[in-house]
Design a protein around this nucleic acid. Structure first.
Length: 154
DNA sequence: GCCAACGTTGGC
DNA sequence: GCCAACGTTGGC
């Protein structure tokens, strides 16, 4: 099966690309949207590459690349009573939310800002840039992924 | 099943 | 901090 490409959003004040670099890899969890869950659980394959996007940041944009490691796993945070990610409907036999391990690959020398993404004609169809998009896990076309990698080097 | 109220996301 | 977009909840 061919490789897929993805983008995940994170608020750097909560968990940044530097946190991922420090940790080496991390469970990408606390995602509480069903469409994003399907990407995490069913869409991603081991070895897929993932753009890391800083939202609510100065500046906002793509800051690096990670790799999908292993299979989907139940999001452990859904079982933690008292945690704001707790999910009362979830049981161990029937988890509601899923997570993936992402491994740090590299940090771009500079953030590829949202403004520069919007200014790039090749990215005009990118799902991230669609009006009102709030999904925190998104598929990215291979050509779009390559384009952003080139922008990071320029 | 409809839909108003409400909560969250995320750019600015 | 504001607010548009839009997902979720819950009464009916």
């Amino acid at each position: 099966m061919t490789m897929k490409h993805w983008l995940v959003k994170t608020e750097p004040e909560v968990y940044s690309i530097d946190d991922l670099k420090r940790d080496g890899s991390t469970a990408w969890d606390r995602v509480r949207n069903h469409q994003a869950k399907l990407s995490l659980r069913d869409g991603m394959q081991p070895g897929d590459r993932v753009l890391i996007y800083h939202s609510n940041a100065e500046p906002t944009g793509v800051v690096g690349v990670a790799t999908v490691v292993g299979e989907a796993m139940p999001d452990a945070t859904q079982f933690r009573k008292g945690d704001d990610a707790f999910e009362p409907r979830a049981t161990k036999d029937a988890p509601v939310w899923w997570a993936r391990t992402l491994r740090f690959e590299r940090r771009f020398p500079a953030c590829v800002t949202l403004a520069s993404l919007r200014a790039e004609p090749k990215l005009a169809g990118m799902q991230l840039l669609a009006r009102g998009n709030r999904l925190s896990v998104l598929p990215v076309a291979a050509a779009e992924f390559a384009c952003i990698e080139r922008m990071a080097k320029a």
